[in-house]
Amino acid sequence: MLEFSAKNMSHRELNFALRQLVLSGEREIRVCGVCGHRYLGTGLPGPASITVEGVPGEDLGAFLDGCLIRVLGNAQNFVGNTMNSGQLIVHGNAGDIVGYGMRGGSLWILGNVGYRAGIHMKASHSQTPVLIVGGRSEDFLGEYMAGGVIVVLGIGCEGSTRPVGNWVGAGMHGGTIYVRGNVPGHRVGKGAKLAPCQEEDLTQLEVLLAPYCREFGLNLAALLGDPFVKLVPASPRPYGRLYVSSVGEC
């Protein structure tokens, strides 16, 4: 374990130091005194793990490529921007645009997320990104989602109608969003539709949530005992005929 303070370091210096350490084979790093440093751990490969004390700045773990980053408090906006693989774990809340364009790896938030979480997530044949939110999400969850899985547990929202905000899954054409609790129809965005959870969904949720619950000390069985709803794309190719249809046909 290597420990150091980021106090008095610019974000460039801090990221340079982290990159040098990870590339030279350091496996466990702990950084304290982080305060608004941007782009923390950008593109870092595995198998290193970095623990962050303090509030990291925008674009935490952008393009992450295998490294594990654990934040002990809150994070800001753009967490996991376009991350490719690895793990980002936040023991607090995160801001807006979490998991923007994420294409692999897993992103776990214990608390709430802001607006546009999981916007434009995408999957490929070999990779399925996973975003799990323990608390609630604001508007535009999974907007333009093209692949991957988002789970919102809504812990602390029990009995309320808003574990998620408005326009959930607006414009989505791939992937799946699971929400523990209720999502009223008027909160579903254009392009998404509600679907009941089947046996295979519950199996997938169990697989995804087991390590998440271990990390945060949550009761897996109790969470899985509650009803979940699922949001899926209303169409896999909503714009397929946008430029080919003749007048009046679209």
Binding site: C35, G36, G54, V55, E58, N74, Q76
Partner: peptide, 8 residues
């Protein structure tokens, strides 16, 4: 604008 600044 940013949470990190609050600690200043």
């Amino acid at each position: 604008s940013e949470e990190s600044a609050v600690s200043a």
